[in-house]
Amino acid sequence: MQSPRTFASNISWAKLRPHIVGWAFISPWLVSFSFLMVYPFIASFVLSFTRYQLIGEAEFIGFENIQRMLFGDERVADALQVTFTYVLLTVPAGTAISVFVAILLNQKVRGIPFFRTSFYIPSVIGGVGLALLWTTILSANGPVNAALGWVGIEGPNWLFDTSWALPSLALKALATAGAAMLIILAALQGVPQHLYEAVDLDGGGEWAKFWHVTLPQISPAIFYNVIVTTIGVMQSFVEAFIMTNGGPGTATLFYGLYLYRQAFEFYRMGYASALAWMIFLIILALTFVNFRIARFWVYYEGEE
């Protein structure tokens, strides 16, 4: 066994310095991550077992919040239904659109940088600004209905009709698929040309190239987009908050909006924390399922 003196002499400054410098460089991130992520994460877990209304002490109430969330609050089911429907409306269609547009933008035609920029620009605009813009576009008296009117169609009351409100928000989401498109475009440009040449040699056509080469090659990028988009859409908030305030009725009551209301409008922080943990677990489960399914359709080079 080493004596303390021997141990201390073995740990020289020269040996320690790289570690200290390394920790010093990482410390800004580490500190902010600890205080802004880990602490709230743990705090929200603890709060989910309490009744806490912003002022005063949090009162421990055991599983009361969870019980209410699962069995006593029908709005949770409403909000989950709206959110899942929104995911189904936006993720598959958004993925298909981004793949389609990326393929178009991968063509060698004049002016392609302009088109690429045009498709990507909506993704750059901030969420609130874009939501306000779409509120105007889809208003009863807005340009969409005006255009429909020119061809003799009476447009619906997009954002304030219980049947149309959620599809309207989905439409807005689909029109801003530029970020996903960019990732797929990058993947498309990484597809080796010799694979296409091999298809040519085998006598395959364009469809064969797409189905047997392009799609497998870009499947990791598609998978990445599906994962990221699903997580993002499950947490949707801004669209409903700005454009419809969850209405009409509960037609656009996203889970995120309901959670926000419980926390910052009704001041039920404990219950809101429980809601936050439930959506976290749901997203975790969905992501797990997505990874399991990915084995059957995502192709990674180097794998068997």
Binding site: S139, A140, N141, N157, F160, T162, P248
Partner: peptide, 12 residues
């Protein structure tokens, strides 16, 4: 009705 008011009232 409530939706027409919210959808059209102010817009119109």
């Amino acid at each position: 009705n409530v939706d027409d008011y919210q959808g059209q009232g102010q817009a119109l």
